[in-house]
Design a protein around this nucleic acid. Structure first.
Lengths: 224, 224
DNA sequence: TCTACTAATTAATTAATTCTTAATCATAAT
DNA sequence: ATTATGATTAAGAATTAATTAATTAGTAGA
């Protein structure tokens, strides 16, 4: 099954170079030249992954990213930014907007394709892999079982969902908003402290070193 | 009945580590160091499951996988790949070649064994096994007979179906919804408490340790 | 068809667990 | 030093399951 990639950049040359390299590696590629077109195309094309330039006319990449993240049809899409090294937009801003990764310009096509593949593989892992391991934690999702240092740990549902989310992509920063959306879904709106309390419980059960707080933004598991 | 595993990798160290761990878990293990030998051994040994390294001399894992899939004698064999995370062969290619799953290197022996077990279990279910055994419970589905500690136990229809479901995949978590769909099928809609009551009856007949409650989600039998 | 029995479901109560909130304390950023 | 944000704790609300008993449905046999 071929993966579909949507490339978004206002520079036609870049679009063509990337398209060429991705197609050579057997991806299906669609392109857009600004954020507004990107969203339209994304809805029709249903890409597995979107590459977004940060600086674009009409609608910049970060805004586009936020919009895409609000679309339920594209729930599982992977988003990665293209950032010029000196761009003032910090990477944190990008991650805050819900991106999964970013790629520095200037782009080296081989590195680019490798990165795309690895991002897709990472998702593949989390989606179809029933077993997640992280240091001495083993999660068997279908069995709802969690082991920590050989011993089985009992988790309540929200704790379990939160842990699975954080470990599904080690090192990725999850914003509070994203955590809210993905663990609490459309549940009645609950206060922010609720997340803290659940983080607390996970830390109690798995030690203080599992989860980092990124103040003002969210949480992440330590890189493996 | 012991399951037979064929390990295929050109790295002798890996073969030995995996062999050791699998044998410890009571599997019968055979090894091969490349795809060509693998096919020969597979034909003689008739393994239940083959673990194939992707990168090997002589014949790579993907090619070997395709060949094995063409052999009618090995129709039901399960194939799983070993893939290095950065290997350029994408896992997608592997699944396309007919693999059932893949395991990332570096391998953690525990995860590896767990995965092998779960793959074998998955197949066990799909085969129509008439007899299910679980600790001191024996079920003969076609005869509608259940024995517990040598004695025959009389079960009502729904009790029987529920027990068979739960034991068809020991340790698997069945959600209430799934139980509803599979035991009550499209029967008139019955309330949630009905499930509880049937669980109760099974616990009365087989003891309190057979079935776990996962609050908010469903039930599971204990792991065997 | 009626009867007697068994099975299945519901209802009602109790029990257990999980989730959320609120209040207070601690810490980092400006 | 002030402010904003997170950590922590404990309490109680809310959810969900266990249990028991009562009711209804289903079935086999006279």
């Amino acid at each position: 099954m071929k993966n579909k990639i949507l490339l978004v950049d206002d520079d036609v040359d870049i679009l063509e170079i990337l398209r060429y390299n991705l197609e050579k590696s057997n991806f299906i590629v669609e392109t857009a030249s600004n954020g507004i077109i990107a969203i339209e195309k994304a809805l029709k094309f249903k890409p597995d992954l979107v590459v977004l330039d940060v600086m674009m006319p009409e609608m910049d990449g970060i805004t586009a990213c936020e919009k895409i993240r609000e679309l339920p049809e594209l729930e599982n899409v992977i988003i990665t930014f293209l950032t010029a090294r000196n761009e003032d937009y910090s990477q944190i801003a990008g991650l805050e907007a819900g991106a999964d990764d970013y790629i520095d310009k200037p782009i080296q096509p081989k590195v680019f394709v490798t990165k795309i593949k690895s991002l897709l593989r990472r998702r593949l892992n989390t989606e179809q892999n029933d077993i997640i391991t992280f240091n001495d934690i083993t999660i068997e999702k279908s069995k709802f079982k969690v082991k920590f240092q050989e011993k089985e740990v009992k988790l309540a549902r929200k704790e379990f969902d939160l842990l699975v989310l954080l470990l599904s992509d080690p090192g990725k920063l999850f914003t509070r908003e994203e955590i809210m959306n993905r663990v609490w879904k459309d549940d009645s709106f609950v206060g922010d402290r609720t997340i803290d309390v659940h983080i607390r419980k996970l830390r109690q059960k798995f030690g203080e070193n599992l989860i980092n707080t990124i103040k003002g933004i969210g949480y992440q598991s330590k890189e493996q």
